[in-house]
């Protein structure tokens, strides 16, 4: 689905990603873990096309297309979805208007007709119920006055509504209590299918108890220094990152 080769990226003049390689296939869930400042969020933002991040080297092929050549909205229409670490507020624009516009924009890109109001309403009610979201949140302005947990849940609602090919979850677990974490995970697991893939960027193993990954990668200083199965996450939980840092130093 997505192949990342030798990716280098800068933000505000500092090189954060220094030759990252990753291959994600349909049906897989990959977890990216690593200490603060290792480049996890940078990777998520670069894939989504945030212009604050500058790609200096490398390539990203997404379903046969050169992803780095596409504008952020084109990437979204091709099927990339980023669940933001800090979702922004859009005052005065209701969640439903926003989501209908998003769905219609994507459909337009694919030369499909707009979603009917009836179909849309049925869809959003179904997905909101799945996430235990109050219907009131649907008619409220996007993220305005939402609690941290509501914002994250709203990101997952959008994920389910837009049903992308590749979902990138950027620290979706941060700031969530255990109940919210379970609900968010339920949403992501519901989304999982053999046709799509998920990249879970996270700090803690905790989330991976609920969203069980097929692969775990450790990102450190802009590169993946270790990859493994889901048991790697448990090992990290137990030992921290320091033993890997030594490994890396030894490797150099």
């Amino acid at each position: 689905m997505i192949t990342i080769k030798n990716l280098h990226a800068k933000v505000a003049g500092n090189e954060i990603l220094k030759g990252l390689n990753l291959q994600v296939n349909a049906g897989e869930v990959h977890a990216i873990m690593g200490p603060n400042g290792s480049g996890k969020s940078t990777l998520a933002n670069v894939l989504a096309g945030n212009e604050a991040y500058e790609v200096t080297e490398g390539e990203v092929i997404f379903n046969g297309k050169n992803l780095l050549e596409l504008a952020p909205e084109e990437r979204a229409c091709e099927g990339i979805f980023l669940a933001f670490q800090y979702p922004v507020e859009i005052p005065g624009v209701t969640n439903s208007t926003f989501l209908k516009t998003a769905i219609d924009s994507i459909r337009k890109y694919r030369n499909e007709p707009e979603i009917s109001a009836k179909e849309f309403l049925a869809l959003i009610r179904e997905k909101a119920a799945l996430l235990d979201m109050d219907n009131k949140l649907i008619s409220r302005a996007v993220n305005e006055g939402f609690s941290g947990g509501e914002k994250k849940r709203n990101e997952i609602l959008q994920l389910l509504m837009l049903n992308p090919k590749l979902a990138i979850l950027d620290e979706t677990d941060s700031g969530l209590d255990i109940d919210a974490l379970k609900i968010v995970s339920k949403g992501v697991n519901y989304f999982r299918s053999p046709e799509n893939a998920t990249i879970v960027v996270t700090h803690y193993q905790r989330l991976l108890d609920y969203i069980v990954p097929d692969f775990v990668h450790v990102l450190y200083k802009g590169r993946i220094i270790k990859s493994g199965g889901k048991e790697l996450a448990l090992e990290l939980e137990e030992k921290g990152y320091d033993w890997l840092k030594t490994d890396e130093v030894e490797a150099v």
């Binding site: 989504a48 096309g49 945030n50 212009e51 604050a52 504008a71 952020p72 909205e73 990437r75 979204a76 229409c77 979805f81 980023l82 933001f84 979702p87 922004v88 859009i90 005052p91 005065g92 624009v93 208007t97 926003f98 989501l99 516009t101 998003a102 769905i103 924009s105 994507i106 890109y109 302005a141 959008q158 837009l162």
Partner: peptide, 25 residues
Amino acid sequence: EDQIFYLNQRGIPTEDAVNMIVNGF
């Protein structure tokens, strides 16, 4: 820029994103 990127990331082109933000305002 963050608001525009957020809307872009959901497939909404920049002109439409600006209109949406202004209409909300």
